[in-house]
Amino acid sequence: MQNKIIVLYKSEYGFTKQYAQWIAEKLQCDCVEISAVDFNKDYKTIIFGGGLYAGKINGIKTLIKNYDKIKYKKIIVFTVGVADVNDAENIKNIVSYAKKQMPEEMFSKIKLFHFRGGMDYGKMSFIHQCMMWFMKTMLSKKPENERSDSDQAVIESYGGKFDFSDKNTINDLVRYCL
């Protein structure tokens, strides 16, 4: 384990796990599903990744619950979702979601990154399919000239399969760790 870094993740459909594995490979460190980690181990840097579902970071509650054990360590959180990370409004919303879910002390200490994942409607749970149907329905009601590229992508891809994952997007996070 190099530099006493660990990458933790909570992944429903594999996109977050893939990013976690890429990061761990690049940093030559451990990569563990968050439910299997021992927060009492002597890691200097904790990297956690969770998928975004309806504005909630999957698995973040476990990190929050163990914050007292890790608050003196370097903490990095990355989210994975379908939102276009080149759209400033999307990033603003993701930061807002994260801020609402974490205690202020924790939020002010972490470094937050966002990566773009994908969707495979055939593998989605019924609840997530319903959430996406609702989102598509709401976005479809917007006038076309008011829709963002991300809005239009959700509408057009509804019911299908797509993957925006990009291994190169982890480079800023990796540099931050070194």
Rank of each mutant, 00 (worst) to 15 (best):
I76M: 10
K56D: 00
V95L: 09
K65T: 15
C29M: 09
E104Y: 08
M102K: 03
D30M: 11
Y53H: 13
Y43C: 01
I110A: 03
Y97L: 04
V37F: 08
S35F: 08
G55T: 08
K99L: 03
D42V: 03
W22C: 06
G49I: 10
L63P: 02
M106I: 13
K92D: 14
S35C: 12
K109I: 01
E33N: 02
I70T: 09
I60W: 06
Y19Q: 08
N40E: 13
E25R: 13
A54H: 01
K111H: 03
K44G: 15
W22T: 01
Q101Y: 05
T62F: 01
K26Y: 14
E105H: 12
K71T: 14
S96Y: 05
K100C: 00
V82S: 12
W22E: 01
I64D: 05
N93C: 10
K109R: 13
K100D: 06
S35I: 13
N86I: 09
T79S: 10
K61Q: 09
K26W: 10
I60T: 04
G117C: 14
Q101F: 03
K99M: 07
C29I: 12
K65H: 14
L112N: 07
A20H: 06
I64T: 10
I23K: 07
I94A: 04
E25M: 12
A88Y: 13
L63Y: 05
W22K: 06
A88T: 15
N86P: 02
C31Q: 02
Q21K: 09
G59H: 07
I46F: 09
I23V: 15
K61G: 04
C31E: 03
Y97T: 06
T45P: 05
I110E: 06
V77P: 07
I64R: 00
A24E: 02
I91N: 14
N93S: 15
V80A: 08
W22N: 04
N66G: 14
K26M: 11
S96E: 05
K73F: 11
F78R: 09
N58P: 07
K100V: 00
N93A: 15
V37G: 01
F39V: 11
F115I: 12
Q21V: 01
G49H: 09
I34N: 04
N66L: 12
A98N: 05
N90H: 15
I60D: 03
F78V: 12
G49M: 10
Y72L: 15
I70G: 06
F48P: 00
F115E: 00
L27T: 04
G55M: 11
P103Q: 06
I46D: 05
I110P: 02
R116E: 05
G118R: 03
K41T: 11
K74D: 12
I76V: 15
V77E: 12
W22V: 06
G81P: 00
V32I: 14
G81L: 08
S35M: 11
Y67N: 09
A36C: 10
L27A: 04
I57H: 06
K69W: 11
D87P: 04
Y97M: 02
K73Q: 14
K73Y: 11
G55R: 07
D84T: 14
N66R: 13
L63C: 00
V37N: 09
C29G: 11
K99E: 10
K111F: 02
I47R: 10
S35D: 14
G55C: 13
Q28P: 10
I76T: 09
A54P: 03
S96F: 07
